[in-house]
């Protein structure tokens, strides 16, 4: 039997495990950055400023989007294709809204004279840009993944082959959501 078909002997699908191990990797990148943030903050020349309110709105949006993608998983499992597609679309829209709000947040900081880059910048602002920016890139990846499975969902008549994909994307989406909440709390209060 010359085949490379996956013959897993455990309950968890290999792709799910891959994703979970990958989360560990992403966590370490942000752990590195937030540790560097703490070290840098304890040194001289650190600018103190408040995060614009826009970041509160974006946090609310991403929290709601976690709920909607979970509903998409539920509907995919129940085979309710129309509602499945609907929840996927809503999640994608919320994701794009989050991206816009974050970018506006960066703009608001610049308007408050908190330069994020360039010769006037302080590493406090630059760290915010790098940390929140990298998180944003991860979220953009999530939106692209939702777009891809949405396209597949449009063509599919049943959700049988979609469940694994949407579960994977939902896990990633929840992860990016939790990661942002950690970063939001860190940037607001801990750091």
């Amino acid at each position: 039997m010359a085949t490379t078909q996956i013959e897993s002997n455990n309950k968890i699908h290999p792709y799910k495990m891959l994703l979970w191990v990958g989360f560990g990797s992403i966590v370490m990148m942000f752990a590195g950055l937030t540790s560097a943030y703490i070290v840098k903050k304890s040194q001289a020349n650190w600018l103190e400023f408040d995060l614009p309110n826009l970041f509160w709105f974006s946090t609310l949006v991403i929290l709601v989007s976690s709920f909607t993608i979970q509903m998409a998983v539920k509907k995919a499992k129940a085979g309710e294709m129309d509602q499945y597609r609907g929840f996927l679309s809503v999640t994608a829209i919320l994701g794009i809204t989050f991206i816009i709000l974050q970018l506006r947040g960066f703009q608001a900081l610049e308007l408050q004279n908190v330069a994020l880059t360039g010769v006037r910048s302080n590493s406090a602002g630059s760290f915010l840009l790098v940390i929140a920016g990298l998180h944003l890139l991860h979220l953009v990846g999530g939106v692209i993944a939702i777009a891809v499975i949405s396209l597949k969902a449009r063509a599919a008549k049943s959700s049988t082959n979609q469940v694994l994909s949407v579960e994977l994307v939902a896990s990633y989406w929840h992860f990016v959501d939790i990661l942002w909440i950690y970063l939001f709390v860190f940037l607001n209060w801990v750091g």
Binding site: M29, L33, G118, V119, S121, S126
Partner: peptide, 19 residues
């Protein structure tokens, strides 16, 4: 990933005037 985070900060210092 921690090295990657260090390299990203390096890119910013080289190209975007950060400190």
């Amino acid at each position: 990933p921690v090295l990657l985070s260090g390299l990203i900060l390096l890119i910013f210092d080289r190209n975007f005037g950060t400190s």
